[in-house]
């Protein structure tokens, strides 16, 4: 519970809220990268250096850029979302917002009321810096988590081929 945690959390939340509510699609993605970067900083604060850097590499460097490319290919540059009829739009926002609000209320209540969570951690119970070095992660990946790693490789290969096949130009049908 430090000041930096609050700043980072506020940054993350602000970025993601902006990403989900701005009109201009490119602005949405730019705000989203801010949120992802804040999240990576939160990971760093939790002591997970490897995951934090991977987060930046994958989300800021790949997913956000990919989404930008998709927007550029499907939208005219700088186009804003098509204005729908305002009544249906507000109705949509109210329904979605209320559902999400209800989910958050339930989750917050569960977190607050859960007996399983230690309400106040004694300082000595907190591991000062758990060993999440790259070497430990590598050892874990190569020993305990070999099967998931291999399946992940298979999944990524399948996703690569699948994405190329799906996005490839459809063959013109013979007349």
């Amino acid at each position: 519970m430090t000041v930096s945690f609050f700043i980072l959390a506020a940054l993350t939340i602000a970025g993601t809220v902006a990403a989900m509510s701005l009109r201009n699609l490119v602005h949405c993605i730019l705000a989203l990268t801010l949120g992802f970067a804040g999240l990576a900083a939160l990971y760093l604060q939790l002591g997970a250096q490897f995951v934090g850097f991977t987060q930046i590499l994958v989300y800021v460097g790949a997913v956000a850029i990919l989404a930008m490319f998709a927007i550029m290919m499907t939208q005219r540059a700088g186009a804003v979302a098509q204005p729908a009829s305002s009544s249906s739009r507000t109705r949509g926002w109210i329904t979605g917002g209320m559902t999400a609000g209800a989910v958050f209320a339930v989750l917050a209540w569960a977190i607050h009321a859960s007996a399983a969570l230690p309400q106040t951690l004694p300082p000595q119970a907190l591991p000062s810096q758990p060993d999440a070095g790259v070497r430990a992660i590598g050892n874990a990946l190569m020993h305990g988590f070999v099967l998931p790693l291999e399946i992940m490789g298979l999944l990524l290969t399948a996703a690569l081929i699948g994405a190329v096949l799906v996005a490839m130009q459809e063959k013109q049908e013979m007349p």
């Binding site: 991977t54 790949a62 956000a64």
Partner: peptide, 8 residues
Amino acid sequence: AVGSMVEL
């Protein structure tokens, strides 16, 4: 990771 921010 930092290098990939340049693209952005």
